[in-house]
Amino acid sequence: MSVFEKFKRGLTKTRDFVSAQFNRLAAEFGHFDDDMLDELEMTLIQADCGITASTESIEAIREHIRNTGDDSQAGVIGALHETLSSMLTERKLTLERGRLTIYLMVGVNGTGKTTTSAKLAQRAKREQFRVMMAAADTFRAAAIDQLKVWGERTQTAVIAHDMGSDPAAVVFDAIQSAKARGTELLIVDTAGRLHTKKNLMDELAKIRRVIDREAP
């Protein structure tokens, strides 16, 4: 199965989940009052729309109802569609020419940090920024190798140490190299971690201290 097919299948599951919950709410409440909108907000969050996007979407629906008096299913769907579509418009990267910006990629395992790092690198290079990546996920040799492969594909320099190295040391070396090369965007790929794992969070805090000290 191709990456596109996997992505499409994942979106289909999300669409079906939201659609089923939406229809359930419409049947249960009849019209979109505050209680129903609260339920709809929870549905969007459960569908991984994100808290900010979900909250803004519901507020836009409330404003639509206040302004038009239309609390019908069609009206609410239209307002939701318009709001979510506006969030998906392409925006330029907020980078400064001649100044180093660092993106620290964090999150739990399997969320696509490494792939997203490569996508960000490719996009920044299209906009003529000087880019570098740092392989600060030193727990798995495969993670380092994967970032190197993406570096080759995007023609982006990758700073990496051996597996088991101190991630903060990788970041330190990457920052020094980025400064020497006049890099404008340094993307730091880190290992997946849960916020409940104190040792891993302490490691992340150490990386952040290095960044704050070396690239304030």
Rank of each mutant, 00 (worst) to 15 (best):
E56I: 03
D16F: 13
R193F: 04
D202L: 10
L40V: 12
L204R: 02
K13G: 07
T52Y: 08
T94A: 15
V131E: 09
A169H: 04
K113P: 06
E63L: 15
D34I: 15
N23S: 14
F7G: 10
V3E: 15
L100Q: 09
A27S: 15
G182R: 10
R15A: 15
S117V: 00
V188T: 07
E184C: 04
E56G: 03
A178L: 03
T115I: 09
T154W: 01
D166N: 14
N199E: 14
K206L: 10
P167E: 07
M163Y: 01
R24Y: 11
F7E: 05
V106S: 04
I175P: 00
K198Q: 11
Q46L: 10
F22Y: 12
E63M: 12
V131F: 02
L80S: 13
M1W: 10
A79F: 07
Q122L: 11
G192E: 00
M42R: 11
G110P: 11
Q46K: 15
A174L: 05
A142L: 06
G151S: 04
M87L: 13
Y103C: 04
R123C: 05
L44A: 02
I77T: 06
M163R: 12
S86E: 10
V3G: 02
R24N: 13
S117D: 02
R91F: 02
I144D: 08
V170H: 00
A47D: 12
S86Q: 10
A134L: 02
T12Q: 13
F4G: 01
R9L: 09
N23K: 13
A124T: 12
A134Q: 08
G182V: 01
G75F: 00
R153D: 07
R15M: 06
E56T: 10
D35Q: 11
R99I: 07
L80A: 15
T94Q: 14
V158S: 09
R123A: 14
